[in-house]
């Protein structure tokens, strides 16, 4: 526990130092934040354009899809804020800089995660919050304690799921540097998939990216519960409240994969 508190306070210091450094370049920061906002907004524009042609998408209304989109994007945006720099991890391995993390008195995963923090990524968070506001405002949700609880747990669970997927797939870099771009199919691909109703996708895509890589638990299942909507796929209702459990399981798998990969690095060497 003391160990955790110490790590968190160290992380807070790291973030504070970074934010100070980034705010030195105000124009850069402003432009890149706005750009992040707009890039993220594009996906939602696509949804709006689709709904200007049809009233429903696989039984989901525009506000319902907006809720899916907002939950998925918010989870993705926070994950991106915390560990978006993991895209550069293969370069870290290639240049041998991972060695430096092994000679410091902290866990390697902690050091990798805290290795950067780009405040401009808040642009995406802002955009997702706006859409969430729109969705909650438009949908007449019949609030009950369990629905509120499920909604509150959705984004933290989503962050843990995305983060776990991200960490697990970048472990490929311990074996091959070229694997990075292929991993985008899981990270960015999964994030894109989660913005839409699972039931519009073909079965094998659902099984693979929805359940095996558990993207369906990021927004689809919890949204069904919050909306009191019948699952068009007819899957057991317990799945709709299972996201936190799935997230913890994903985290366990990811940290196991990470430890295995680091042990491989130490015995193979680079």
């Amino acid at each position: 526990m003391a160990e955790l508190r110490e790590s968190l306070s160290l992380y807070r210091l790291l973030i504070a130092a970074r934010v100070r450094a980034q705010l030195q370049y105000r124009t850069s920061f402003a432009i890149e934040t706005v750009a992040a906002f707009l890039v993220s907004f594009l996906d939602f524009v696509a949804i709006l354009v689709i709904f200007s042609n049809v009233p429903q998408l696989g039984t989901w209304s525009v506000a319902q899809v907006a809720l899916l989109y907002a939950l998925a994007t918010l989870s993705f945006a926070f994950t991106d804020l915390v560990i978006g720099h993991l895209d550069g991890f293969p370069a870290l391995i290639r240049d041998g800089n991972f060695d430096l993390m092994l000679v410091r008195p902290k866990g390697t995963l902690f050091q990798v995660i805290t290795g950067d923090f780009q405040l401009r990524r808040l642009g995406r968070v802002a955009q997702a919050l706006l859409v969430l506001g729109y969705a909650l405002n438009t949908l007449a949700i019949d609030w009950t304690p369990d629905r509120a609880l499920v909604l509150a747990l959705t984004v933290p669970s989503g962050v843990l799921i995305y983060g776990s997927v991200w960490v697990a797939v970048i472990c490929i870099a311990f074996w091959t540097v070229e694997g990075r771009e292929a991993a985008n199919a899981f990270t960015y691909g999964g994030a894109f998939l989660a913005q839409y109703p699972m039931n519009i996708f073909d079965r094998w895509l659902r099984r693979f990216l929805g359940y095996f890589v558990p993207m369906a638990f990021i927004a689809y299942f919890p949204a069904l519960h919050v909306l009191g909507k019948t699952d068009p796929l007819g899957l057991p209702a317990v799945l709709q409240v299972a996201s936190p459990v799935v997230a913890l399981a994903a985290a366990v798998v990811a940290s196991t994969v990470w430890r295995f990969a680091v042990r491989h690095y130490q015995s193979a060497g680079g």
Partner: peptide
């Protein structure tokens, strides 16, 4: 790198195709 990129573009292609095909149910 080309093979990896093709893989990603293809996965996204499937997702985008299914999304737009859902419009034609109606």
């Amino acid at each position: 790198a080309t093979i990896a990129g093709v893989f990603v573009n293809t996965v996204f292609g499937f997702m985008r195709a299914f999304i737009l095909l859902a419009l034609f149910e109606q």
